[in-house]
Design a protein around this nucleic acid. Structure first.
Length: 586
RNA sequence: GGGGUUGUAGUUCAACUGGUUAGAGCACCGGCCUGUCACGCCGGAAGUUGCGGGUUCGAGUCCCGUCAAUCCCGCCA
């Protein structure tokens, strides 16, 4: 190759003045002033302005004249300090330029479907189809750099703490207990299928049995469920497991890791130790098991006051074993009827039947359900809800979890509406003491809230059969700015307890042996007490990058219909392939 | 599985209450210009208004269906 590079565009400095250097890169912009023209050449490291003067050969200048954005070029020239009135303070190399002496067009580019140097052009759909072009943008290059850096910090940290990085199989046995599995047919074993791991959970527990007492892996996981802005069908976890530990051991080492990531990658200090909230407290105060602590606006408990009102909605909810909770929204008393109707629609998505409210002014309560609240209760209500004139108090009367999640969602909407969230703030918190089980609303059957390998709290062991819904789990989640970025637990390491757990979940001994026998058998050969955690690597990067969508931090993401517009996956396959796999389509 | 939003030139958007030949910036093509850096100036080309149907004298606009993207609920052990 002629004119092979010896420097990167973004690494050129004044120290190199008068040196002859050669750069390769993409045309970021061209400014043709007639006698001279300027071409900004871009590579991964930055942008340098190249000056093509009139003294250059005619043929070369003609070629430069027809350069387009994204053409791939090579330039050899002399580094020169720019005239003082021509400095560009917007770019790091703005005090210098490259005086071209030789030039080669390495490859021509068609006009791009959207503009690389203006990221607001082009729909996301289009950008995904031409992802290799989108990845050239400064925004995605920065995000990929942060992702890379984070992975290196995590590896270094865990390795220094004696964690071993061990790869686990991608083709594994299907255990369809939680999310749907992605299945892979086996050609050699007709009619049989592998599953792609939803997480390496069983393998890492087996590694503990094997004595590898500290394991980690930055690993792809797969879940065939519907997607969201923060959910992809294939995603990456920082998966960790440790032996001879309790909850505090896992949490204390992992919060140091997260703090180190924030310090080294984006220069943010996260004070340690992190606050710890019980699931119950997180729900009661913030209406969420992944609370955003960057702003206050806490929910308040209102059962006793509500019972004294004349409002039938409150009374009915309480009689049916539900609760009444309130959220005071500061300075929202001027919300229109239309706004209130919209908010009502929003909370209904979370199962609330409606949204009762009162507006507070200097004379007391106005509008909404004010007439049902006896005057004698008003001072107490205002004090309890920390409400002042100009505020709006919203009420939810419903089953406990519904009432709180509805107000929790409202709390988030209002924080965004009033701009209460500081984008540069990072508030992490541990949420603990989750219930071990939850009820499937359709079948009424018990389901593991975390997963079936989570250990119950020791003091709740005797309630596993008699009162399972009261059993707490030795589980912990890390929430960061309202995102669940990690979750883990102390695991069951005893065959009998694991059997009791499966039984509680309605999985009989035969089924348990068939599906998880390998793990349960392993427990009989000296399984150490162990526990671990998995962080959503993509979500963590998303927060580090200040992005709202996980697609912005994944090199080649899928759409919300789990497709890849760029390569057309998933696609139909040749009938011959299906035949080899012993598969016939319906 | 359900609900919301969006879909107009390569691209970002506009087009009033249904009314003339669907406009503008950027990109593209041609020309001018020796200190620009989102260069500037002059000119040009560029459209199945996502797709299919309906209402109407007349549809980018209203209605029905459909497709795609996106956001949310369910779901995500």
């Amino acid at each position: 190759m002629r004119l092979k590079r010896d420097h990167h565009c973004g690494q050129l400095t004044e120290d190199l003045r008068d040196r002859i250097v050669c750069i390769n890169g993409w045309v970021n912009a061209r400014r043709d002033l007639g006698g001279i023209s300027f071409v900004d050449v871009r590579d991964r490291y930055g942008i340098i302005q190249v000056r093509f003067g009139a003294e250059l050969p005619e043929s070369l200048l003609k070629e430069v004249k027809h350069l387009n954005n994204e053409d791939v070029v090579a330039v050899r020239g002399r580094i020169a300090v720019r005239p003082s009135d021509s400095v560009n303070p917007k770019i790091p190399t703005g005090t210098i330029e490259l005086l071209a002496e030789d030039f080669a067009l390495l490859n021509k580019a068609k006009p791009t479907p959207f503009e690389i140097n203006k990221r607001q052009t082009g729909s996301e759909d289009l950008r995904l189809k031409y992802r290799y072009l989108d990845l050239r943008t400064a925004e995605l290059q920065r995000n990929m750099q942060i992702r890379h850096h984070t992975a290196q910090v995590v590896r270094r940290f865990l390795s220094d703490k004696d964690f071993m990085e061990i790869e686990t199989p991608v083709l594994m046995k299907s255990t369809p207990e939680g999310a749907r599995d992605y299945l892979v047919p086996s050609r050699i074993n007709p009619g049989k299928f592998y599953a792609l791991p939803q997480s390496p959970q069983q393998y890492k527990q087996l590694l503990m049995v094997a004595g590898y007492d500290r394991y980690f892996q930055i690993v792809k996981c797969f879940r065939d469920e519907d997607l969201r802005a923060d959910r992809q069908p294939e995603f990456t976890q920082i998966d960790c497991e440790m032996s001879f530990v309790d909850e505090e051991d896992v949490r204390s080492i992992m919060e140091v890791m997260i703090a180190e990531v924030f310090r080294k990658v984006i220069g943010v200090t996260i004070p340690l130790p992190l606050p710890v909230l019980s699931f119950h407290e997180a729900m009661e105060r913030y209406g969420s098991d992944k609370p955003d602590l960057r702003f206050d606006m806490e929910i308040c408990k209102l059962d006793e006051l509500a019972a004294q009102t004349d409002f039938s909605v409150f009374k009915t909810a309480l009689e049916q074993g539900g609760v009444v909770r309130a959220l005071t929204i500061p300075d929202a008393a001027d919300f229109s009827r239309k706004t209130m109707d919209e908010l009502t629609e929003q909370v209904k998505k979370y199962g609330a039947k409606g949204l009762a409210y009162v507006k507070v002014d200097k004379n007391g309560l106005q509008s909404g359900i004010a007439k049902f609240i006896p005057a004698a209760l008003v001072p107490g209500l205002l004090q309890h809800c920390k409400a002042k004139a100009g505020d709006l108090i919203c009420f939810a009367a419903d089953e406990w979890e519904t009432a709180l999640t509805s107000l929790g969602a409202l709390r988030l909407m209002m924080a965004k509406h009033f701009g209460l969230i500081n984008k540069d703030e990072y508030k992490a918190v541990w949420v603990t003491d989750f219930p071990l089980f939850e009820k499937d609303p359709e079948s009424g059957r018990l389901m593991a809230r975390h997963h079936p390998f989570t250990s119950p709290k020791t003091e709740d062991l005797d309630k596993l059969e008699s009162d399972p819904m009261a059993v707490k789990a030795r589980a912990y989640d890390m929430a960061l700015n309202g995102y669940e970025i990690g979750g883990g637990s102390i695991r069951i390491h005893n065959r009998d307890l694991q059997s009791r757990m499966f039984k509680a979940l309605g999985i009989g001994p035969e089924e348990a042996q068939e599906k998880f026998g390998f793990l349960m058998n392993a427990f009989e050969y000296g399984a150490p007490p162990h526990g671990g955690i998995a962080f959503g690597f993509d979500r963590l990067i998303m927060v580090l990058c200040g992005e709202d969508s996980i697609r912005e931090v994944i090199a080649f993401p899928k759409t919300t219909t789990a497709q890849s517009p760029m390569d057309g996956a998933p696609s139909e396959v040749d009938p011959k392939q299906l035949d080899e796999l012993h598969i016939r389509l319906k």
